[in-house]
Every structure is written in structure tokens, then in C-alpha cells.
């Protein structure tokens, strides 16, 4: 499916918002969350740029599944590091093992075990997704963070929807048709980025 000018415009805004977040949005944090958020928004920025340059065909690359794992893993690690100090080490280990597991199960070694990569990605994305979705909302409800911080959770839900649509499409059992998925993809990506940036800024 050909990318429209509107798609490119939406992706450009995503790039600028991600760049803003990297440059000024996370300046006051400590080193570990800064690194985690830089990786998350950095991957988002580069991915949006590559989509603008190469079009939707880039989503057919097998590396997309691995790269798209980095965003929720890095974001959730940043959140846990900032707000759940006692789980830092545990979650860091999960992040590293999760990323390695997704990468390794997508290699040729697992070609004869078709269900293993799917289960692995479901577990890794699931834990990271639930963390991004629930943690900001709980923190907002408890009054530890401002209500606007729950926008990060909404962003987490949107990244989950994005991920599900793409995963099922790539798995050959699409929830929406390929054209419909690609049509809403740039808007979802932008909306997700807006939620993250606004959540961190005003939360």
C-alpha cells in the first residue's frame, strides 16, 4: 500500500515529538531512566523516519518484530526504574532476557518450533505492555503522580493495539485487513507518541 502525504505528515510529527522528548522531555531524570527512555523514543524516531523514507514495505522486514519489542521493553524499564525501586534489578534482568529471547526465537534455530516465537513474544510484550498501561494509571490514582501521567498508560494501550495489529498481520491471521491496518498505523503511532510526551510533560 502506497503511503499518502498525510501519512508522511503524521509520521513527521511523530519524529519531531520523539526528538523533543529525547532532547528536553527527560532531562530531569537519573541516568538509567534517561537511557531507557532515549532508547524507546530513539527507536520510535528512527522507525518513523524509515517508514517515511521506505514506505510501508519496511514493515515486511523480519527485523520489525525484534525492533518493535525494544520500545515497550525500554519504556517499561524506565517506568519501573523511576517508580518501583525495589523491582529495578528484577525488571532489568527480565528486559535483557526478554529481548534476547525474542531475538533468538526469531532466528533460524527455531524454524521447527513455530509456536515458540509466538509464545515468547506474547509473554514479553504482555508483561511490558501491562506495565506501561497499568503503572502510570495506578500512580495517578494513588496521587503519587499528577492525573495527566495516566496518559502514558493510554499510550501504552495504543502501543499494545499497534503491536497486536502488526503481529497478527505478520502472522497471517489479520484482525483488520492489511490496507486497513496500514491506513490507521501512522495515526495510531502519532496518537501514542502524543500520549507519552504529554503524559511525561504534564504528569
Amino acid at each position: 500500500m502506497k503511503m499518502t502525504t498525510l501519512d508522511r505528515a503524521l509520521l513527521f510529527i511523530t519524529v519531531f515529538l520523539s526528538a523533543y522528548q529525547i532532547v528536553v522531555g527527560i532531562d530531569d531524570l537519573s541516568t538509567a531512566p534517561i537511557t531507557a527512555y532515549t532508547i524507546a523514543f530513539g527507536v520510535l524516531l528512527v522507525a518513523a523516519l524509515l517508514l517515511i523514507i521506505l514506505g510501508f514495505d519496511v514493515l515486511d522486514s523480519p527485523i520489525v518484530v525484534i525492533v518493535s519489542t525494544i520500545i515497550p521493553l525500554a519504556l517499561s524499564l524506565g517506568l519501573v526504574w523511576e517508580h518501583l525501586a525495589s523491582y529495578r534489578a528484577l525488571y532489568l534482568v527480565f528486559t535483557i532476557i526478554g529481548f534476547l529471547a525474542v531475538t533468538l526465537t526469531r532466528t533460524a534455530l527455531m524454524q521447527n518450533h513455530a509456536h515458540v516465537p509466538t509464545i515468547t513474544i506474547a509473554i514479553v510484550h504482555g508483561i511490558a505492555g501491562v506495565t506501561i498501561f497499568l503503572l502510570p494509571i495506578i500512580l495517578s490514582i494513588q496521587g503519587i503522580m499528577k492525573p495527566a501521567f495516566s496518559l502514558v498508560g493510554i499510550g501504552g494501550a495504543l502501543i499494545g493495539i499497534d503491536g497486536l495489529l502488526l503481529s497478527f498481520l505478520k502472522g497471517g491471521k489479520p484482525i483488520l485487513s492489511r490496507d486497513a491496518t496500514l491506513k490507521i498505523f501512522p495515526s495510531l503511532l502519532l496518537l501514542m507518541t502524543i500520549c507519552f510526551v504529554a503524559g511525561f510533560k504534564f504528569g
Partner: peptide, 9 residues
Amino acid sequence: RLIAVLTAG
């Protein structure tokens, strides 16, 4: 940080 991200790409 932004330069590092763009460079990584």
C-alpha cells in the same frame, strides 16, 4: 542524545 539516536539509525 538526539545525535546518538540519529547516528545509531
